[in-house]
Design a protein around this nucleic acid. Structure first.
Length: 209
DNA sequence: GTCCTGATCCTCT
DNA sequence: GAGGATCAGGACG
């Protein structure tokens, strides 16, 4: 659309995609809390016809099967079946009638656990993100689970997609020197006292400070 | 079938 | 800081 011209901006990030940097399935087939913490510093990357958009993962939450806040807590349903599938796939669900949230499925097949990606630091495709979000401020692009899905152009149709091959992948980043804070999760009622949220200290792109 | 709630975000006060 | 948007899933009858 013509209106997008107003959002043309220089790319500030230095992200470069290399297929060999895609995280392998074995990365996801581990304890969900470990995966949630170790996803910080890596890159969520989405290729579309409009171009590539990517962000550094700086905030995550773990959802465990025996955890009342987890969709899988009461067993498998049509909605949550992807969580019980093989690790390294996308679990994308619709909330509040208008937003989608993106999760990476963890653990071995048969266990319903996943990591919610809550915030990214935009690194590539920033003009595309601005157009999709209808906002200019860098901090308004990916600082929340619904926002980052919109900024990257992810849709509910990608629920179940393989994160180790294809157009939606997670790539290895540099995690050295990363200072990580562990705290309670955001926006849930039951299970809210569990320390299952992880974020990068001093990062201005987290969803809640 | 009805009713209620929600892993959110935006706009207003 | 409060309230509205907006709808699928799950609980219940």
């Amino acid at each position: 659309m013509m209106g997008d011209k107003g959002f043309q901006a220089k790319e500030t990030g230095s992200f470069q995609f290399c297929p060999e940097n895609i995280l392998p399935r074995s990365f996801y087939a581990r304890d969900t809390r470990v995966v949630a913490e170790e996803l910080l510093g890596h890159y969520l990357v989405h290729f579309t016809e409009e171009g590539l958009a990517a962000g550094k993962i700086i905030e995550t939450e773990a959802y465990l099967q025996n955890d009342p806040a987890c969709h899988a807590a009461r067993g498998m349903t049509r909605r949550n079946r992807v969580m019980f599938g093989p690790p390294g796939h996308a679990y994308i669900y619709f909330v509040y009638g208008m937003y989608y949230c993106f999760n990476a499925v963890t653990r071995e097949e048969g266990v319903g656990e996943a990591v919610l990606i809550r915030a990214l630091e935009p690194v590539a495709g920033i003009s595309l993100m601005r157009a999709r979000r209808g906002r200019k401020d860098l901090r308004d692009l990916c600082s929340g689970p619904g926002k980052l899905v919109q900024a990257l152009g992810i849709t509910g149709k990608q629920n179940g997609q393989d994160l180790t091959a294809g157009t939606l992948v997670i790539c290895r980043g540099n995690r050295s020197g990363l200072e990580i804070i562990r705290t309670t999760r955001i926006g849930i009622k039951s299970g809210g006292d569990l320390p299952l949220r992880f974020y990068v200290a001093q990062n201005q792109f987290v969803s809640v400070r």
